[in-house]
Structures are given as C-alpha cells and as structure tokens.
C-alpha cells in the first residue's frame, strides 16, 4: 500500500467526564478510502472531530503528512489540506449556494483555480448549478448534502473527512452520493476517511474498514474480507443466516466480546 497520509495513535477523547474514544489507532494510506463503521454513540463523529481539531484529545497523537496536528485550531487544520464534511451538512443557510461554495475556497488565493473547481463541482452535481443563486437553507436535504461535499471539495483538499453522508437521504440519493465520493477519490486522488452507519454502502466503496464499538476498534480488515465476516453480515448488514431448521432459536453473540 501507498504511504500513510493520516495516522492516529492511542487517541483518547472525552466529553467532559465521559470517555468517548478509548485509545484508538488507525492509519489512512494516501489516495485510499478508509471507512469507520459503528452504531450510534460508538464515537465515530468524535474521531473525525478530533482529527479536524474541533475537539482536543486527552492523549494520543494525530499525524497528518508527517506532522502532528492534535490540538490544533480547526482553521489551521483545514489549511493543511483536511476538509471536514460535518454530520448534518451544516451549510450556511442564508448564503446562496454559490457563496457557500466560495466559502469552501476561503483558504485559497488563486482565483482561476477556484473558478475551475466551481465548474468541476457543478459537473459533479448539476443540480447545484441550477440552484446557484438560491439560499442554501431552501435546498432539500439531499441537495444540502451535495453542497456540503462540494464545499469541502472547493478547498482542493488532500483528504476529506466525511461524516455520515447518507444520513436522512433516500436510497437512490445515497447511491448517487457514494458514486460521486468514489469518483472524487479516483479522479482527483483525494484520500477519504468515511464514517458511516450504512455499512453496506461504505464497505462497497472503501478499501479498508475499521469497526468501532463504544469507543474501541474491535475489528479491522480490507473491505471485501469484512463483507464476508459473519458478525459484520449479521450485525451491520442485517443479513440472517438460515439455520438447519430454517428458523433460529437463539440469539447469536458477537464473537469479539
């Protein structure tokens, strides 16, 4: 595999007295798509927030492109080339779509490059072009998600952190958005760290996956292999094996506990 772009080691982050991440280590190779799966409250978003600097870790290190960035202010982290697409989109509701996109390019000075990238995201999401002068708050949920991803792309990042891009979207839209994420990774060479509850989608576009439960990583493997694991199938993909008698009479326990 290629060089590691982002490495997290022994990370511990607290919400007040509550330990949200309990010593996590993982690595994201350059130009790959890595996903972190987990249920509600497993600590997925906390990991992303710690990486992007919104939360400060108690212990551990975050290394991006050979530089330790834990505890840095989020605007500095963004300048280093990490774009965070937050959970719940978080667009600027009273700015127009175009202004939102320009804010994404806030850190950049090259006017020509920004205009070029504006065209690029419009080609990824044509609907944004037709809504360019509308207020972002008036967009539908799916369009806002497209806007949030595009806005992050406008910074021409080396790495994107995506927090539950499928949240609250129709299955067709989810598919569309994931296809774009795969394209961004393939065509632009942007490294992606994807956090998802929709394990099926995530495992199909990612190269490598980690499974997070209550603040710990309990399993990691390449995505094709994760897809084959019984526990993943049962608890994350919702596929039930049919037993010898056709119906199961016992509840299976997760084997990693």
């Amino acid at each position: 595999m290629a060089d590691t772009l982002l490495a997290v080691a022994n990370l511990e982050t607290y919400y007040g007295p509550i330990m949200a991440i309990r010593g996590i280590s993982f690595a994201v190779p350059e130009r790959s798509v890595v996903t972190i799966l987990g249920a509600n409250g497993a600590g997925k978003s906390t990991i992303l927030k710690t990486v992007s600097g919104v939360m400060d870790p108690q212990k551990g290190t975050v290394t991006f492109a050979g530089r330790e960035i834990q505890g840095m202010d989020p605007d500095k982290v963004t300048r280093l080339g990490i774009s965070h697409v937050p959970e719940g989109r978080e667009v600027f509701p009273f700015l127009s779509v175009r202004e939102n996109l320009l804010m994404g390019a806030f850190t950049r000075r090259d006017v020509a490059g920004v205009a070029e990238d504006l065209e690029l995201v419009y080609s990824y999401f044509p609907v944004l072009r037709s809504r360019a002068e509308q207020r972002a708050g008036s967009l539908s949920g799916g369009e806002q998600q497209m806007l949030a991803i595009s806005r992050a792309l406008m910074a021409r990042p080396r790495m994107m952190l995506l927090d539950e891009p499928s949240l609250g979207l129709s299955p067709r839209l989810v598919k569309e958005i994931f296809e774009i994420i795969a394209r961004i990774n393939r065509e632009r060479g942007v490294t992606v760290l994807l956090v998802e509850q929709n394990a099926n989608m995530a495992l199909h576009i990612a190269d490598y996956g980690y499974v997070l439960e209550v603040g710990r990583i309990v399993m990691e493997d390449t995505c094709p292999r994760l897809l084959e694991k019984e526990d993943i199938k049962e608890f994350y993909l919702g596929m039930k094996e049919s037993g010898v008698r056709g119906t199961r009479r016992w509840k299976r326990k997760k084997t990693w506990r």
Partner: peptide
C-alpha cells in the same frame, strides 16, 4: 467581499465556518 461573506458565514454557522478554514 470575501471577508464580508466569511463574517456572514461565521455568524450563521460557526462550526462550519471553522471547517472552511475561516479564522472565526
């Protein structure tokens, strides 16, 4: 202006403004 828009953005959504690299 870029700075003016960034100010609007910061007051509408502080967290997102941070994510954009705006020094809030």
């Amino acid at each position: 202006t870029r700075i003016g828009l960034a100010m609007q953005a910061s007051s509408q959504n502080q967290l997102a403004a941070y994510y954009m690299g705006i020094p809030v």
